[in-house]
Design a binder for these strands. Structure first.
Lengths: 341, 341
DNA sequence: GGACTGGGCTGTACCGGTACAGTACGCCCG
DNA sequence: CGGGCGTACTGTACCGGTACAGCCCAGTCC
């Protein structure tokens, strides 16, 4: 059976192709009665509705938005905070009639997602600023919004006050009287210069509070995965001589590793060791003790990113950059250090 | 500045549009020297490469694959097992030169993702079998593969032996000597008939082992989210008279809730209560005690689903249905019940 | 009664590529 | 020296829609 197109329906009903198109896309352009007849005929022929690819070409809009990720997608998904952000983005886009297409960095010269995927705009989430992939997005002139990144050119950015949150976390420990503090942060992926924006900002924030107090933190790092590494690194930190009385962590997952390490070594949290996380992810409430951490509103970040992108796509004036607040959430994993001997 | 198309490059270089197209898409069709000149001109004019939408129309292929989800995407992301599956799928597709587009159920009559998004095929993950969304996919004649679902029509399915895994889990408890067993499973979303496939299969598996042993389990349910509900439900189960000595759980997250409930009530795990999870997610190793659970290979599930879909898209013979094995992983959360009084 | 209005439908020209069947030409062979 | 062949490039006809400018005709107004 031949493919059903607008033309075949038009022939069947005896109207012009354009009228059939209108029946689907602009119902007010024809009488209700005729529209009924056309839809009935379409149904009968098994028409599926206007072909998305053809429509995209003719209209110049595809109805989907790209989400550019730096790592292989799998790595991004393993971070619950990232996953929550994606979810928020996807939901918001669905509400506005857009689908979300996930874009990876190019893997071969033949297929470069940022160049070859049809889309109306792109969200750029923690990507290498100088990558070829972003260069293609720029070159295509696609509307963009970048998230959790340094501002890049004139692209609207949506960020979180990582630095302020980290500062508050560190200040909290200083205020409690800690002077020996460890930091467990994210290992940089490819050399010291390519630290992710959040990692850099959080480090700056911690130092904002520690430096004035004259505290030189002991810094150790771990990769996102596997989770066991954070635990191992924490054990190392806590076993070494001059054990800190408090640890600032890049994420709640890392903090969880520290708590488990403390437990392993027979240290009481928060009695012997205070632990602070970051993100206020679901883990934070289920650790024992519940985690003191820095909350960010990930869902809202997604929402604002989508709103900014849609505004850019509509060609309104360039939306302003956004920086969302963070908030220190004090739970039970932090306390004053035991009175010094 | 006017848009740069193949034609404008052709005019500039003084060749036909077709030759320019070949320069980009079929390099062997023209001399290297000419190709160089064309690419240089393209670069100079700021050409971005063939327009994806136009190419999709002309070629009849879009280069992207849809992933149909039943719930709002956010809910799917909150399940780490689902997230891991998506990640695996996305990575595999990227390797094959496809982008992944996330599809939600239609939210309005205007925009129905399964009807309106351009794609070459679709993966269907735990969806309502009779939804309009799947009906559109069928009607479009799109290649499909369904995952964690009952077989639907002639669509290739990729499943996991949920039933066998659950059976093994329940049998494990029976073998340990438990006779009073609770089940904490997933709440059905919209009426008893629309239980998800894994939930149904796992229940069947548990009964496969319990029924022959003459054990009538006490069944309670909780929704995916919020996690606190599973905890609350578990507390209720353990406080009620006739407390079970073991609980089979739909997921590791639920099992974690049960362990926390037991702890709250001063019950020792596994001394007073054995707990079995499902999925062997990362949580399973970090609970205390580490969780006895049923492992499934989620990454492989994604890999096979993609392979099957690509095969279907290539129009090879219909790939066969797949059922992946599951494996009981015995850790420290299960033990024989204390000797009956 | 003629000009104006507007609803309802049509015709044509794209959108920006690709497929495929040529054509032109140099070269080798009998 | 004519026929066959391979290489390099071209011309045309799509792919399946949408935008936009008409056209026709009935109704309204003065």
């Amino acid at each position: 059976m031949a493919k059903v197109t607008l033309q075949s329906i038009a022939d069947r009903v005896g109207v012009s192709r354009m009228t059939v198109s209108n029946a689907f896309s602009r119902p007010d352009q024809l009488s209700a009665e005729l529209r009924e007849r056309i839809l009935a005929a379409a149904d009968e022929l098994g028409y599926v509705g206007p072909d998305p690819a053809a429509r995209a070409l003719a209209r110049g809009r595809t109805g989907s938005v790209g989400l550019m990720l730096n790592d292989r997608i799998s790595e991004a998904f393993e971070d619950p905070i990232a996953a929550e952000f994606f979810a928020s983005v996807a939901d918001r886009l669905a509400d506005s009639g857009f689908a979300l297409t996930l874009l990876t960095p190019r893997t071969s010269a033949d297929f470069v997602p940022s160049r070859d995927v049809a889309m109306d705009g792109a969200l750029v989430y923690i990507c290498e600023p100088d990558s070829v992939d972003l260069a293609w997005l720029d070159r295509r002139g696609l509307p963009q919004v970048s998230i959790d990144q340094n501002k890049r050119g004139s692209v609207t950015s949506v960020n979180v006050d990582d630095r302020g949150g980290a500062r508050a976390a560190a200040q909290h420990l200083v205020d409690l009287g800690h002077t020996s503090i460890g930091i467990l942060t994210l290992e940089s992926i490819a050399g010291p210069l390519s630290q992710s924006y959040p990692a850099t900002q959080r480090m700056l924030g911690w130092r904002d509070a520690l430096d004035p107090a004259g505290i030189g933190p002991r810094i150790v790092t771990a990769p996102y995965r596997p989770a066991a590494t954070a635990y191992d690194v924490a054990v190392g930190l806590l076993e070494a001589p001059g054990r800190p009385t408090a640890v600032l962590c890049f994420s709640d997952a890392f903090a969880f590793g520290v708590i488990r390490a403390a437990e392993k070594l027979g240290l009481d949290v928060p009695g012997d060791l205070s632990v602070v996380g970051f993100d206020d992810s679901p883990v934070a409430e289920v650790t024992r003790p519940p985690l003191t951490t820095v909350r960010q509103d990930v869902a809202r970040k997604g929402e604002l990113a989508v709103a900014a992108l849609l505004a850019t796509m509509r060609g309104q004036e360039q939306p302003e950059d956004v920086r969302l607040p963070t908030e220190l959430v004090v739970r039970a994993s932090t306390a004053a250090p035991r009175a010094a001997t």
